[in-house]
């Protein structure tokens, strides 16, 4: 059984069809990439997996570990092991990174029937996760994403991922706005978390990120459908030829 199984998924936003029959199957231990032009429905796919309001599933299903994911609230999906690295991480004024992460981790641990970490245990744990990402105590004490640079925000997303140890991580345009050094740090962070027990879905416009996070499978999403799937070479082909070949006239 695949870890994530998306079958014939149709999604509308304000009655406008965005996803028009997606099929996707990801096994544990795999990294998949979804590439596509702007407006193809990439972010919609990540939001519908995470359970954001405002999207209507008109047909199809999403199974996570064999369970109907669409029945679950966003926080229940997170507790089941889903993580979404946001394209635009959200600012939460007055809430320190440490408080936020500790609250999140302890929610997940409670969901798994594990004891909560106290402040000291958590601090030790989070520092270990933060060091490789170049995140020091100063950044841990700052309010979540407030006043962060683009690169800091993305590194912070990867820190959250490292702390929460998801079974399936969806990275939504994690490379956008990153310079090459930041991109490497982020990619190293993601690669360090790869294991036979988890899977990653990388959503991106550019091939660049896939030089560093090498996918097992690449899918092309255009106009709400997966129009082509292949190995990692498909990404290089797209880089060379562009998306025009897949786009319908009105979407181009």
């Amino acid at each position: 059984m695949a870890l994530l199984e998306i079958r014939n998924l149709h999604v509308t936003v304000e009655d406008k069809p965005i996803l028009k029959g997606i099929d996707l199957s990801i096994d544990k231990g795999e990294v998949h990439a979804i590439m596509g032009p702007n407006g193809a429905g990439k972010s919609t796919l990540s939001y519908i997996i995470a359970g954001r309001d405002g999207y209507e599933v008109t047909d199809g299903q999403i199974l996570f570990d064999g369970k109907d994911m669409l029945e679950l609230e966003p926080d229940e999906r997170a507790r089941a092991g889903l993580f979404l690295a946001f394209q635009y991480p959200v600012e939460i004024p007055g809430v320190t990174n440490t408080t936020f992460l500790k609250t999140a981790l302890n929610s997940l641990r409670k969901g798994r029937g594990e004891g909560e970490l106290d402040a000291m245990q958590f601090l030790k744990f989070v520092r270990e996760k933060a060091r490789p990402l170049g995140i020091g105590d100063e950044m841990l004490k700052r309010a979540v994403n407030v006043g962060y640079s683009g690169g800091e925000k993305k590194r912070n997303e990867i820190l959250q991922m490292a702390v929460l140890e998801p079974v399936l991580a969806v990275l939504d345009e994690t490379d956008s706005g990153l310079d090459i050094d930041a991109l490497k740090i982020v990619a190293d962070g993601v690669n360090a978390l790869r294991s036979p027990d988890n899977a990653t879905l990388v959503i991106t416009h550019y091939q660049r990120l896939l030089d560093y996070i090498v996918p097992d499978r690449v899918h092309v999403l255009a106009d709400g459908r997966i129009v082509k799937s292949g190995g990692k070479d498909l990404a290089l082909e797209l880089e060379a030829k562009g998306y025009a070949q897949f786009s319908s006239a009105e979407a181009a």
């Binding site: 609230e73 993580f83 999140a104």
Partner: peptide, 18 residues
């Protein structure tokens, strides 16, 4: 903000409180 918190596993009410 609410969705961001909930995506990290924090319940709706805990998110509001946070």
């Amino acid at each position: 903000q609410l969705f961001y918190c909930r995506q990290r596993g924090i319940s709706q009410e805990e998110a509001v409180s946070l």
